[in-house]
Amino acid sequence: MPQKPNRVLLEFEKPLLELYKKIDDLKMQDMDMSEEIKMLEKRIETLQRDIFSNLTPIQIVQVARHIKRPTTLDLINLIFNDFVEMRGDRNFSDDPAMVGGLAMLPGCKKSNPLGETIFDQPVVLIGQQKGSNTKENIKRNFGMAHPEGYRKALRLMHLAERFNAPIISFIDTPGAFCGIGAEERGQAEAIAKNLRSMAGLSVPFISIVIGEGGSGGALGIGMGNRVLMLEFSIYSVISPEGCASILFRDAKKAPHAAEVSKITAIDLLEMNVIDEIIKEPVGGAHNNYKETALNIGSAIKKHLSDLARLSSRELIADRYRKYRNMGYFTEE
C-alpha cells in the first residue's frame, strides 16, 4: 500500500506522481470513487512494474538507500516473534547503529517419519540499524557502527553458538564508521576478529543484504553460509561516490562507478558472491513492508532447513569452501 501523506518519490518515479495526485483528488470527493481509484491503482502498479524492471545501477543505489526502505528492526518485527533486544558489548558501550537479540521464527518445518511438524525456531539476530528520518538517523549514526557495534554482534554470535541457535544477520550500512574514536578503539581489529570468528561458527548462519552493503562494515557481520540479497539492494567494496572520487577524480561520475563496479544483486549472483536474490514487491521494498518481510521470511526458512542437515563440522567446512573459492586469477 502506498503511504499517502509522506510519499517519497525518487527522480525516476516522477511519472507516477500524476496518478497519485489523481487518486488523492478522488479520495477527497464525497461520492464513492472506489472503482476509479482501483483502476488508477492498477495503472500505477503497471507503471511501477515497468519502471522497476529497467532500473540502472545508480537508480538501484537510490532505492537501496530510500529513506522509507524497511530497516532491520522493521523487518525483525514483521518476520519474527518475541524479539528480545540485547544491548552493549560488555566492554565500552552500546552501539545504536548495530542491533541484535533473541527471537523465534514461526512456521519452520521439519519432516519426520510421521510427516511434517511445524515449530518455532529460536534464532539470534544481528543487523545494522538505520533511521527512517533525520532524527533517528542521527541517533543510529546512519547505520554506521563503531567497534563496540561489531563487538556486540560478536558477543551475540558466540551466544548463538553456545545455545545452538542459527544466526541471521541483516546488512544495511554505508560502511563502518570512520572517526577518531573508531580508530582508537580498533575498528579494523573489531571487524577482522569478526571475520575470523564467523569463519569458525558451528551453527547455521544466513546473511541478508536488505539495503546498503557497504564494504568491510557490511562484511563484518556478513560471512554467512548463505548470503542473500533483496532485489534492489547493493553490496560493494566502496560506495559509487567514493569510487568515483578516488578512481575517476570526480564524485559526479558515481553513476558510471555504480555501473562498472558491479554492485547489484544480479551481478553478485553471477559472480557467486551471493546465493539468492529475494524478490521485492512492486515498486520496491518500501512500497510494501509486509510482502517484503514475507519474502525474506520464506527465504530464511528454506535455507535454514537446508543447513539443518549439516553437522557443526560440515557447517564450518561449507563456509570455508564458500569463501576459499572467491577470487579470479590465472596461474601460468
Binding site: A192, L195, R196, M198, A199, S215, G216, L219, M223, Y235, S236, V237, S261, K262, I263, L268, M271, V273, R319, Y320, Y323, R324, M326, G327, Y328
Partner: peptide, 14 residues
C-alpha cells in the same frame, strides 16, 4: 576488482 577484493578479507580471515 570490485566486490571480489572485499571477499578476500573473508577468505584470508577464514
Amino acid at each position: 576488482e570490485g566486490i571480489m577484493s572485499l571477499m578476500q578479507m573473508a577468505k584470508t580471515s577464514a
